[in-house]
Design a protein around this nucleic acid. Structure first.
Lengths: 147, 147
DNA sequence: GTGAATGCAAACTCTTTGCATGACT
DNA sequence: AGTCATGCAAAGAGTTTGCATTCAC
């Protein structure tokens, strides 16, 4: 599976935003840069805190608005692992994606991918009356550090 | 697959609660009765509203406390389908379970079960470093009514 | 110059907690 | 009688919205 460089996501995101008629702005740009550097998902608060730590004082509202825009354009994937926090991560243009396992004890979120699982989900999707547009799988259990 | 009658859940729940040293009470009993009648998942607010509609004025705090207790005892399954609301449904004693598909447009939640999907998840679980204790699958897409 | 993007603060929703009252064993 | 369960209200956490200002085009 050919993996696109992470920087490609930032590029793709800016292009898509412009095509959708959005202007560029400092806050949203900072969120793009931060997300592009990420391996896995972040919550809105984590994004705001991290940007604040870097000196870029981005209002939390702007973070939420940026994430909402990205979501509408399919540029990020929302991940709700329970615990009342929504996390976001870049959605790769190629459609490749992964799922997550959440540690019961420390709350750490780790990514994993599995071809067979994807195929099983595709097969189920065809069987159902719904028009399945997307899916999420969340596993729960103790991570290696917490064993 | 032998399916236990829904009333069995209420019975099992009351037994388990008593064994765990809990007293019985009107509010929690009402929640048990309501959940036992349900085919699929309900949010705390839906439970409270429905009970209020039936004349049983159960405080929302009691609903949350009951659900928390059930969850600790493994009597319900929590389901977080995004949208910032947690839903609960009776966990069948046999361990059989299903997953959910959420309509993009109307928000309706429907249940489905699939053996092959379960097997795929089991296989992935063994491969990972985590001790996988549970899992959730949420599909998203337009339901038949919203096509 | 116009309108979108931003930031602050207030509003909202869902959930949890403190505390006095009432109910179960 | 002693505790636990309940309900109300207040507190918290996460997210959204209103509005004036700033910035991109």
């Amino acid at each position: 599976m050919a993996t696109a460089p992470k920087s490609a996501w930032a590029q793709h995101t800016r292009t898509t935003l412009e095509a959708a008629g959005h202007r560029s702005g400092a806050a949203r740009d900072a969120v793009i840069e931060l997300l592009a550097r990420q391996d896995c998902c972040l919550s809105a608060k984590e994004i705001a805190d991290q940007l604040a730590g870097e000196g870029a004082g981005v209002g939390i509202a702007s973070v939420y608005r940026a994430l909402e825009t990205f979501d509408e354009l399919g540029l990020v994937q929302r991940l709700d692992a329970g615990e009342g926090v929504v996390r976001y991560e870049p959605a790769l243009p190629g459609g490749e994606h992964h799922h997550h396992i959440v540690c019961d004890r420390c709350g750490r979120v780790t990514a994993f991918a599995d071809e067979a699982l994807e195929r099983a989900i595709d097969r189920v999707s065809k069987r159902l009356d719904h028009t399945v547009a997307g899916h999420d799988v969340v596993l729960r259990g103790a991570c290696p550090r917490c064993h």
